[in-house]
Write a protein that binds this DNA or RNA. Sequence first.
DNA 1: GCTTTAAAAAGTAACTT
DNA 2: AAGTTACTTTATAAAGC
Lengths: 204, 186
Amino acid sequence: RLRKWQERIRTKDAGERNLQFALSEVDRMASALGVPRSVREVASVIYRRALNEDLIRGRSIEGVATAALYAACRQEGIPRSLDEVAEVSRVPQKEIGRTYRYISQELGLELKPVDPKQFVPRFASELGLSEEVQSKATEIIDVSAEQGLLSGKSPTGFAAAAIYAASLLCNEKKTQREVADVAQVTEVTIRNRYQEQIEAMGFR
Amino acid sequence: MSSPADSIEIQNVVASTGIGQELDLEALAEDLPGADFNPDNFPGLVYRTQSPKAAALIFRSGKIVCTGAKSIDDVHEALGIIFEKLRDLTIPVEDDPEITVQNIVSSADLGHNLNLNALAIGLGLEDVEYEPEQFPGLVYRMDEPDVVILLFGSGKIVITGGKRTEDAQEAVEQIVERIEGLGLLS
DNA sequence: GCTTTAAAAAGTAACTT
DNA sequence: AAGTTACTTTATAAAGC
């Protein structure tokens, strides 16, 4: 009976330690990503829900913590790409994506697909581009998405191309390489999306 | 009057069977020209048939998985060839081993572009997985028939998880009806 | 969970020419 | 810049770790 008790305390302690570890990891990654405190709080709520629903079994604590943070960023409307999240996590990108899809399904998060426009302010400011370029990029995204060009395309690549196009239109040109670097996509992707977008805008 | 259902093409059929006889795969790998056997990697021996084109995974237990065939008839033909090859090597093979189709992968074309963002919301986010950052297709799990459909912006689709030829047919009819009902089949 | 096999869809990436 | 190759997703059996 005494042993059982000690075991209970031990597992409870272990559980507490695991939770502490997960939340401190969320905190560490959130800081590295520069997301506000509110996002970390949403992420810990998601993590605790996953824990209560026993979704961690068979998965790494760090993987679930990272996926919770990725989900929280999306839920709060300030998404980070899987690439960006993977950079501050010790979990491979593929596992983060897989874990995100799992907890998202099981917790019924029902997050809408990421809107490329949500990347515009951050990418544009990293490139030192003006408000004018940002609103032009936003317009390009809206117009080309409305014409059905967004289906199946990566939101970061779509946003990157629109920012590149807008920088040209507003005489604040950035090279494809510069835009590609902040958005973490290739120049080829920017070129492909850019061509479709300027055609959709009626330029050419 | 071409309907999407007419565009269905079976792309891959997976089936399992067994010869009811244990096998020495090391010996079989020697006797079967073209056989790949790397037990450190995978417990099955891989054997490919040329016509019809298919790949078989042959296990020590005598159980066999056949994949890559373009029709159920091709599965039977390919396995028939393998059964004969084994008999030629004086390995006793049951007269008519039962062949079970486990999965059929089909492709089809809805004939219209799809707005996957609108479709994700229209079909219900709870039944849909659409993560264009990870994969360009929208994943839709259908209950009846029990299949998974991948839908792409081009209107091309993939139906998998079905065990009968009719599953793809029914799935296409169902998904067309649902998308039309949402007014999203431009 | 993973390992292997096959096939389609379309996007993205990493190479080579 | 174009071309090739390869990887992402889905399902499915097999035996074993």
